[in-house]
Structures are given as C-alpha cells and as structure tokens.
Design a protein around this nucleic acid. Sequence first.
RNA 1: GCGAAAGUGGCGGAACUGGCAGACGCGCUGGAUUUAGGAUCCAGUGCCGCAAGGCAUGGGGGUUCAAAUCCCCCCUUUCGCACCA
Length: 829
Amino acid sequence: MATKLDKYNFKEIESKWQQIWDESGLNRAADSPERDRKFYMLVMFAYPSGDIHMGHFRNYIIGDAIARQQMMKGVDVLHPFGWDAFGLPAERAAIARGIHPHDWTLENVAVSRTTLQKVGISYDWSREVTSCLPDYYKWTQWIFVQLFKNKLAYRKRGFVNWCPEDKTVLANEQVKDGKCERCGTAVIKKDQEQWYFKITAYADRLIDDLDTLPGWPENVKTMQREWIGRSYGAEIDFVIEETGEKLPVFTTRPDTIYGVTFMAIAPEAEIVDRLNLEGEFKEKVIDYQRKALARSDIERAAVTEEKDGVFTGKYAINPFNGERVQLWVADYVLAGYGTGAVMAVPAHDTRDFAFAKKYEIPIKVVIHPDANTTLDVSEMDDAFVEYGPMVNSEHFDGLAGKEAITSVTEHAQKQGIGRAKVNYKLKDWSVSRQRYWGCPIPIIHCQKCGLVAVPEDELPVLLPRVKDYIPKGRSPLADVPDFINVGCPECGGEARRDPDTMDTFVCSSWYYLRYIDPHNDSEPFSKDKAARWMPIDYYIGGITHATGHLIYFRFFHKFLQDIGWVDTPEPATRLFNHGMVMDSKGEVMSKSKGNAVSPITLTEERGVDVARLAMFFTAPSEKEVLWSDDSVTGVEKFAISRFYPLIGLYRGSNPDLKQYFKREDLNEYEWGLYIKLNQTIKKVSESFDRLQFNTAVAALMELTRDFVPDRVSNTVLNDSVILKAVQLAAPMIPHMAEEMWQQAGCKGSVLKSGWPGYDPEAVTGDEIEIAVQVNGKLRDSVMVAADADQETVEKVAFESPKVLRFTENKEIVKKIYVKGRILNIVARG
RNA sequence: GCGAAAGUGGCGGAACUGGCAGACGCGCUGGAUUUAGGAUCCAGUGCCGCAAGGCAUGGGGGUUCAAAUCCCCCCUUUCGCACCA
C-alpha cells in the first residue's frame, strides 16, 4: 500500500514526532538499569547563553546520533542535559542589561531549552539540572564540606592571579598566555588569602590512571600529563651562611651539585624577608622585588636571553663541599614551583649560564660529554646540559646519568642533607571568587573556633538576592549584613560567613552524577543508581577543556571514590573531542564578526533533519567544519527527493527484518541488491563506531542509488531494503525516519526497532573483481568466482591481453596473490 | 624553542590491519527540458596525451612484489606548553 506522497512537510512532521516522543517518554532513561546493558551518553555542561550556535548544534547531534543508535540496539540509554548557570558571563550580561543575574539566567535557560527541544535532540528533560538553583548547589556545597573535612579544602595566603577587569581571582587553568581567559586582560599578582582544593594530593593518580583510559584521545592525555608535569629529582638543603637557616632546593640534576656557583631565589619567595639584608643590598633587592611584581605575567613569562637579578650580599653553603656561593634574587626563578629557589649550575643549565655570563659569576664544569672529551669553560658559548661522567666531584667522579643521580641522592639522604623528591607543575586549585553570581562557600569564620563548616542539615547556604552585585574588588556578599553575620555553629558566638563564591568549575565537576538521580533531596545522588550508571560511556565536548574541566572532574570523581560514593576510579571511559565549526573562510564563527550562521535559522528554513544530515556529511566529527550553504545542497536533495520518497515504493509486505534471504530465492539483480544492502549495514555500523557519520551518509546514498524497484519482483526484499535503510538513517534523521516507519505501517518507534545486523553470507558477491598488476602497476582487472583459488585467478589473468603485453617474453619471477583483492605478477627481462 | 597532530582533485572529503588512490557530495563542462532563470534528468570530470601509455596523495630519500599508509630528513599548517631548575 504505497502511500501517496505529499511534499515532505518538515515543520509538521518534526513537531508531530517531538510531541509523540515527549508523550510516550521515549527518551526517558531507566532508573536503575542493569550494569552491562546501559549506556551513559554525555555532552559537556552548557552555559545558557540563550542562543545556540553551530558548534553546540554539531556537538549535540553527534551525541544524539550515538545515543539513538544505542537505544536502537536495545540498551538503556541515559542522555541528559543541563546548565552550567553560575558564573561571570551571566553577571556581566546582567550588569550590561540591568537585569538581575538570576532572572537573566533563568530566562536564558528557558529559551535555550525550547531551542534544543525544537531540534529534536533525545535528551531526557526530566533530569535537567541547573547549577544555580538551590536543589543543585546544596550538593555542590555538600561536596565542599566533604573536601574541607578531609583537609582537601584549605585556606592559604599567597600571590594569586588577579584579573583587574573582572575583579576576581583566577585559577591557573583560567590564565592563557598571562591573560584572563575570559576577557583578555593582563593578569596581575595579588597577595590574598584564598580557598584552595588540594588537587596536588591526587597528582600521581591523575597521571597514572591516564594509562587506564584507552578510550581517551592521546593528545588530551599528553596535555594532562604535561599540565600535571611530574618530575623526579632531589631536594638538597643549602644553608644560609649567616642565619644558619636551611634553604632546600629542588633539582632534577643532583649529579651537577659540585658545579653550583650561585643560588637564585624568586622575588616573591618568603625567605628573602629573613635574610637580614643590609644597606645598599637591601634597597636594591626591595626595588627589584617591586619591579618584578609590577611586571605583568606576559612580560615575565617571555623567554628572553636577558636574565636579570640582584645580588643580596649574602651567601649560602653547598652542603656537599662546604663551598660558599652567592645568593641572588632573580625573577627567572618561579616562586610557585619547587621551593622558589634554585641551585644554579651555569656550566650545565642554559638559563644559569646566561645569568652567570651577564654578572660574571664563576662557571665550573662538573660533567664531561664522555670519558675522552673534556669541556673548557673559556670555549663554551652555551651550557652542556646532557648527561655524562661527573668530574671535579670528589668520590663521585666517573659516575654518569641515572647512576650518578641515584648515588648523589642516596649520599644526601644518608648525610641528612637532602632526599629524593617528586615535583609537580600542577598547583592546588584556587576556588574562591570575589563575585556575586556563584555558589556560596559553606564555611563560617569564627573568632574562637576558626573555620567551621556549615552543618550539613543547614545546607544549602542560599545565595541572597541582592540589588548591588557589581564587582568592586571584594565580594559583594561581604556587604550584605543579613547574609554575612551569623552565629557560629560550634560556640554560638558571633561569626561571619565566608563572603566568596566558588569558581564555576566546581559546579561542573560533579554534575554528571546529579543527572543519575536529579531529584534526590536527601543525598547528592543514590550510590546504588550511580553504581549502575557509571562510568560515562561516551563524553563529548571541545578540546578546550583538556587541562581544565577534564582534570577537575577526574579529581572530584577520585575524591568521591575515596569517600565511598562511587566505585569506579575514572568518571568516563571514552572521550571524544569534536572539531570546531568555522565559516567558509576558515574563521571562527562569532556574533561580533557577524559571520555566525544560526542553526536555528537553518533548521527553520530547511528542516532539522536536513540540517543534521548536512552537518554529519560535510566532515568527520573530529575535524573542523568550514560551514557554507553548499554543505546543504547535496544532502537536501538526497533526503527530500531520494530518501524520503523511498517510502512511496513500499509494498506493504510487513517483512520480518530478522529473516535473511537465500541465493536461490532471488534473481540476479535482487541478489546484487541484497548484497549491497548488507554491505551498507556493515559500512554504516562501522562508521558509527568510528563516529564517521559522513561515510555512513555516503553509504546510504549509494544504496539508494543502486535500488531500482522496477527490477525487484520480490516484494519482501523490496520492503526489507526500504525498512532497513530507514533504520540505518534513524539516528541521524530521526523525525523523517519515524515518519517513514509509520507510513510503512510499522508498529512502535523506529528508534526501538533494533539495529540491523548484516547477513554474513551476503557481503561479498558471487563474482569478485581482482586487480591484476605487473611489477606493481595495475594493468587490468578480472572477474572471478568469489571462492576462486590462486591458480584459477592466475589462469584468468594470463588470458588478459592487457596483462600479456607486459609479461610476454619475460621471465615470471614471482606471483603474489592477496585473496579477493589483487594479483601481482613480477616479471623480469 | 619544546611537544603532539595533520598535509590526498577546483572544494568538503573516501581508502579496514601495506594490496585497484580519489567512494560520496559540491562545483564545473556538455546535452535534454524550459519563454527565460531556477529546478530536474542524462553524460563527463585528478594531470599530460589523438592513442598506447605516462605521471600523480606537501618535498626528498629508503624498506617492499606492492606505500596516502611503515622508516629517515626537510617544508607548511593547526593545537598545546612556553624560564617548571
């Protein structure tokens, strides 16, 4: 019963199916799935900006296609969505428009949600999570308290990254090239007391467990390893000559200890204040410190040959040989790494070499390239930084490389003047923000009791609605007496709430667990449900989060594992970074550039499924897309004029889709078509596995092209081809597929109809084409039976005149046959 | 500077694990249809060549019967880290 075909009315069809899905609860995830029959598909938490752009659209439809295919495979799918709703953008937009951040954010959430619903992504909206609402941030605060109780949230005074424009502290991960990641303003150093999370306590596990994540892209793992930056070495205790204070330094090259000719200390290092500096030296050092602090990070980070510093007039003693070395303050030494001081070995470190040359500090060679080559200081124009045998190093002479390092370190340990030490570039995560629009820190400062966590049964600490939320450089909440003044939970005395709010990366570090149990009001989530749904099977988002969010959320997960809330060491087994969407000239799309193509406009003009198909087809998911209208032309034609009309050719046989055909039941064309169908199923399935939807679309185009119903007399075959094609396309173009499925009279949703398997007996034809090469060059191709052996293939090949032309009068040296593919004849003479 | 990834027609891109390079689509050319344009359909389309054939996967070398794919050197692009002692 071929349906009479109207023009494909996408508007009607899309809203019809979206409504049906909504009513039937198609996308609603099971509460407690079986652990081996579940699939947790997650896209990264989204900031509710009100309009979604092409990049989001691409991200979400990739996740959607995966989720829907899994649903077709019959597993329980969790595919949630939510809003990373606290943070600076809302606050700035609100200030600019004079709307309260709370109202502005919730309006945007509503608009964004409606938009996403219109593009038909299969989110389970009953699990929607919004991080700025108390029922969510109550548990963000709860986690803060757990970290605090476990001594992993602590306060520390020190120099922090400060953005003068946003008037707040930034985490290391939010500083790019010395500038604020958000507004581009040069970041300065500010001395402040702050909350930190002790992520460094997890540094080893965060590095080592990367090896347990084969499903993560190598580049992300590399970036994380480098960001954490573990290096092995030794800490050696130098001694300040005058005060006798120990000055430990970290070095990865203890084998150069006898080559130390000076020490350099970072200008910010505390120890500078305890050196008892005098007279002219004191003035110069203070002046230098002031200058160094005033310099922006960009200037200081610039790697120049010009190292500068000032001599303190003081000396330190090398504990290995008792030598007295000059103590300098120099800003090439980083305060935040190691102990903020370095032992300088000019002969064997490029930076120390440049510094020593400039200030005419002695250079002492203690490593030779090898036993037969010696270094002459007067002829060196750069440091020798490789490993080699130690010289001028007393009883260590002759030792080299690893052995030398171990031996020096062990000696230091025995003498009590040093120890083996591991250092990390990773610093503790600074989480206090002096802004209004964020999750309040659930801590009370009491004069008597110190820092006291807000009791768990009093959470959440509600963010008060205030009129004045404009940042002034200190937290706006500090000026809200009703909020700030509170009784101490321990002694009942007068106390003050912490006025800061949390970095939004805290909110986004655990949201994936809330999705599992979003309405739980007695716990952050149910352990049992988490055990069933975790880990995330596929996590999709931009590469930009490689060293930020993706480290933070691994850290949180490991912490939650340690306190018994989850039972997997890692939150996500498979990570995928989709490519960016650019305009046709390769420039990033943005509103300010005016080159942004809105996915909304596109879907309104051409339909959601056509827009999706165009995005899938134009490039594989990991590559960037240069978007142009031409991307739509071909697929639109295919979808509307080729694929959808297939349903008009359906003959109503209601075939059993699990049934395979036999050779003898089909005519020659039909058997060929059947093979094509099975090849397509195989190809599309493989394309999905690799997230190469472009080739999946191509395969469907080929099948459609090769399908000539006039030549098909077997009605069941005809109908099977159509229905299976609909199934294969369904994850990519769900509305159209549902409509076709229904028009064919099939019961239920195509998205629950099963994912087609291919008939292994029918992926290769009876006859196959074998390429024939002579000396590696293609000369002809011949048709042989699919099961032909080498002898047969050779026989046929040597009948080809095209082949004979190149083999005649020549000696056949060798024949290589690759089954089913190629025959290469090696001829000589 | 260091590290990683990638370079294939006019364009987006195919090519499993070393086995017919250019699937699929855009664009272009010719034809049909149309008052014209658009749309649609058919054919062609890597380069050179009338053909036979030759040459082609950033460039150069190598391994192999066979290389886009593996190895070495160089170039370019993108991304990440940029004084981490």
